[in-house]
Design a binder for these strands. Sequence first.
DNA 1: ATCACACATGGGAGCGCTCCCACAGTACCT
DNA 2: AGGTACTGTGGGAGCGCTCCCATGTGTGAT
Lengths: 355, 355
Amino acid sequence: MVTHGIRGPGGRSGGRPTLEEVAARAGVGRGTVSRVVNGSPRVSQETRAAVEAAVDELGYVPNRAARALAANRTDAIALVVPEVESRFFAEPYFSDIVRGVGAALDSTEMQLLLTIVGNDRERSRLARYLAGNRVDGVLLVSVHADDPLPELLVQLDIPVVLSGRRSADEPLAWVDADNVAGARGAVAHLISRGRRTIGTITGLLDVYGAQCRLDGYRQALVEAGLDADEGLVAPADFTEEGGRRAMEELLDRRPALDAVFVASDVMAAGARQVLRERGRTVPGDVALVGFDDSAIAHRMDPPLTSVRWPIEEMGREMTRLLLAEIADRRPAGAPGDDDRRRIVLPTELVPRTSS
Amino acid sequence: MVTHGIRGPGGRSGGRPTLEEVAARAGVGRGTVSRVVNGSPRVSQETRAAVEAAVDELGYVPNRAARALAANRTDAIALVVPEVESRFFAEPYFSDIVRGVGAALDSTEMQLLLTIVGNDRERSRLARYLAGNRVDGVLLVSVHADDPLPELLVQLDIPVVLSGRRSADEPLAWVDADNVAGARGAVAHLISRGRRTIGTITGLLDVYGAQCRLDGYRQALVEAGLDADEGLVAPADFTEEGGRRAMEELLDRRPALDAVFVASDVMAAGARQVLRERGRTVPGDVALVGFDDSAIAHRMDPPLTSVRWPIEEMGREMTRLLLAEIADRRPAGAPGDDDRRRIVLPTELVPRTSS
DNA sequence: ATCACACATGGGAGCGCTCCCACAGTACCT
DNA sequence: AGGTACTGTGGGAGCGCTCCCATGTGTGAT
């Protein structure tokens, strides 16, 4: 009957122990072993001990596929990262997020599935993939407002957590840095240093976070009773080149500029080059504050004051949220306590010589 | 009998179509659908077409867990990254590797499982995990010579590919950059620019790649008939601070130094600071060449000449190798063609102002 | 026509789990 | 004493596939 026994060539049969073998060894039934392995309380002390002993002796590790098939869950979550982001966000952004996620998963049986989506073809492959019901939840890194993925996941009834919101009233669960407060603090810092004509270089304004940083900038000016002159706002796109162009624009429009809050370090690097080319000293003539506290900030000349946001912690919190949502999964309908599903993490100003 | 039907609360039952349903729809048997889905040639044209139509209409996606259970394979590979590496190798190292791996997996059904191992506890958890037979293969990024993981995988008979070798006669499959040639080219470049007293700052010499870079340095000197004076070699540890110390040492020992080949850009950044502090101009007094061509290289002042190695391509090649090994899996014993299992990728000198 | 052999196909058995029902044993009430 | 209500346990059924054997069905050689 055991026609199977020896699987085709190469098939690792070696014989990892099965539940049944553990049960035999411990002198109990399959159900009981399953209960012990899964930490059910409905097992007596002695039985539990006997089973645990058998598990140890045999070196039993549950077969994930079998479990997934029987229980209709996968014990895996996917981290979806748009390729673009993996490239140019704050330099260590990607690895920091991953490290945070990994840390949060560490005490779990969950495994992390990584997906980089570049083009649209890959995007639809992913959609197909997720539709195949192969993960218990999804972490979505920096989705853009027009991305169809979140909607799809909602329809498939798969738990999602976003890093960053797509808008002020993001309906999905999310974890975000306090961009407004971070920007406000940075600008307040410039004001406290006596700067009065403070410009800003923004990120892509259809990214909600970029919008928030601009808002924070404005709030700080208003709070200080300064003029929030629109001529002081130069929109850019998070790239170094964009930062260059915006800085030139700003300098042309407002020669008396004495400080700039730049919405990313990379753009700040571009801006700094322009200042040097135009013979403005930093921080003498123009003070500079960046955002992200990325690797380049402390290597700039002079080292760049920047706003740090806790990327690794974001990864951790996203994962916590997701795991909770997976565990909770109400009988459907009950969407859960909304306050539990949105987390704002504080930022921190890292003062250096540029301001 | 269908006691199961409605799974516990929250259980997505929604009803993704199964093989059987597709079979019914196409008016064929289960086996046939399986054959079509898995691309077996032993199916007639018409039948194939009918099945494919049914698959499309129903939006059928095979259930991975069921497949894994039945076929005793997982269609997943793990990428294991030591936490340390994710932190400080050439800045975008981690994401580049991942991107390469992702690209190679793109046309496959394989999924990528990411594991960051930090401490030893996590390391043994991983061992346990892999022992549980949950992946078809493993990519190991920058293993150290004393890491027990490779051995374990060999014992478990799980295919492995390393990025970088642990020694000259690495028995496992690997993909590595041509560190020797890269270093030799860098130093030859310095010589061609008229430099004669060329020092080097090495990485941790128990890392094989660091050793190779040192060898390349020596070869270039010998080829040019220059003196390979050991006083010109300053060992460091891949950190910026290590680079600083090594540079100071070098300057103290050989004041006439007119060039330095540094085995990583990060160390070069440290070295550059020391040169500035000591009033040596770059490249006027001392020419500098780094290694990795990381993000900081082109941002240094002056921009740093560096040796680029194709990280993303390494990820791709590792994956190719691993997939091939998984597909091949001889009836055991036959270890396969060794030349197929080791790949050396060329490096490229990126000249900038520092040399 | 007859046999041999290929190819195409259907479907049973089994992968290792979880879920749940049934059943024993014990404890507590009336 | 009988009833009720647990708690602990065993094991059948089933998750959705792959594998393989058995059964047609067609082709060419004899």
